[in-house]
Design a protein around this nucleic acid. Sequence first.
DNA 1: CTGAAAGCGCTTACAG
DNA 2: CTGAAAGCGCTTACAG
Lengths: 339, 339
Amino acid sequence: MTKGKATSFDIAHLAGVSQSTVSRALRNSPLVKAETIERVHEIARQLNYKVDKNASALRLQRAETLALLLFEDPTSDDSLINPFFHAMLGSITRACARHGYDLLVSFQQLSDDWTADYDDNHKADGLILLGYGDDLNYQPKLKQLEQQGTHFVRWGPQSALGIAVGCDNLRGGYDATAHLLELGRKRIAFLGDASEHSPEFLQRYQGYAQALVAHGMALEPRLQQSAITTENAGYHAVNQLFDDNIRFDAIFAASDLIAIGAMQGIKERGLKIPADIAVVGFDDIQVAQFTSPPLTTVRQDPHLAGEALVESLVQQIAGNRVSDITIPTELIIRQSCEN
Amino acid sequence: MTKGKATSFDIAHLAGVSQSTVSRALRNSPLVKAETIERVHEIARQLNYKVDKNASALRLQRAETLALLLFEDPTSDDSLINPFFHAMLGSITRACARHGYDLLVSFQQLSDDWTADYDDNHKADGLILLGYGDDLNYQPKLKQLEQQGTHFVRWGPQSALGIAVGCDNLRGGYDATAHLLELGRKRIAFLGDASEHSPEFLQRYQGYAQALVAHGMALEPRLQQSAITTENAGYHAVNQLFDDNIRFDAIFAASDLIAIGAMQGIKERGLKIPADIAVVGFDDIQVAQFTSPPLTTVRQDPHLAGEALVESLVQQIAGNRVSDITIPTELIIRQSCEN
DNA sequence: CTGAAAGCGCTTACAG
DNA sequence: CTGAAAGCGCTTACAG
């Protein structure tokens, strides 16, 4: 191997064939004699030759790369990504590898002008969007992506724009609330935004509302307290309830991070979980097993989610029709709501 | 904007200049008249033009992309990445963006033949290696990278091969152990491998040993119990100590995950933390704040770590000399070792 | 089954 | 300050 990396011309020279034949052989073209293919591969191995992906992408007009855009709510206090998304990252990279794609990862603020750089500059063939923040800021960006003809999938609830992979938020919210009701809890607070700004949380709230109605309970608006997905927000939300003298014997938090913050606030008031107040979260992030007490929560399967996102995007790129996908949820019962 | 993406020729046509001038203008070359630069940029904006990175990388022979290889111990029970690495991911992506690099991410098994694909195929200009596993399997791969002339940085202790960014494991181990001794603990178990297979853990063990000696205590080999970085391993390690009837009043675990597993084992035996057994971990992963009781631990700053890794790699690529970097540790005191 | 040639979209040395 | 041209390393239609 000489200085610099070997090219297909180097192989051609050594194999005594043309560069075109080398290129065909490396792609195992049926046009090439089996023996030639063998020889070319052998020489390529010896030279530690790898096809130059830049040249190949330029010629083929596809990069065989996907881009993952993780964006965060700019109002988040610590600028940290929800642990649930971290859990998805592993399955996304693995799914990409299985489909023969590489994965570019970028963290963005929702406010950034992230739209479609990776697509525009040909570095990626499609975009996976993962994040949270005000949905009303989000929608125009999705519209722009759609207009540009960018291939993308988004984690979240279905909407008019683009293909979504999301969990069954309504069902998850229903199950969590029904469980608390069946344990005899009468006054269940909902911690989380319940507006069109957060459609996932809104769906969880609707599940909560439906469960109350199904169990013959009235929906009490004062029991809903907004919060974004952070411990801090959960902490402040529960304190707001206390400060407003609103009585409650259970909390259904729209995310585990909110639940964790709320648990802290509850303990600071000298109340016991679950004896005084039962708590249920949403996500089943890793921390949920180790809180004190361990947190009952609605699990979204990050493995299935990651797989589904990649699969959907790959299908879109291949020009196939795809539909929104809904992943089932599962109520994981731990000690934070046992009687 | 016509069908397909705009190229520099489209801009040239609209601007009434040659394509070469467009290319220069887009790169803000001082050779080009200011007015022309302005006009070209304006047209580029209108066409939503972005430089094709494949073409540019091919021509420049650099991709302006780094690759992050996260690898896991194949013996890990759950095939999950250490949460500490997740925390670093955010700072790595941000540091990359600041330096004008994109980031490819890949999860691998240490046993895979990952070596340098991204480099070989010109998709990345350098590699960031993050992971754990048997160091003796790791070294040959590093040697191969070095022989190929691949630019890379590695998270971990310094060694003969390549540039390393790591924390002060010795100091961290010393501080943790000294703290326990100063609280009056007499028999401190060390949970974690202490061999050349795990040089980071070995250094932490050496810090532990030095602290014991400095406080006039003897090093008792039976108090060291091997474990890889998982909760499961920690759980089994502590149970082994119990089963062997080894007395101990404190544990210094080589990682938080090990500590968390150990805490579970301790509680199952009906013992109290910290009253009966104090526990200190290493990493300060997010979960450490939420265990019961919250875990005292040695913090490695993931933000500094990520920054340093990227900075070092970028310098290497630029052809500058770089040295190994050691990040300081900080003992974070929580309730798991208070008396 | 194979080769010569065109072309993907850039960047930049060379010539003005 | 600008343009024509070469060339980065591939893939593949075209011609045999």
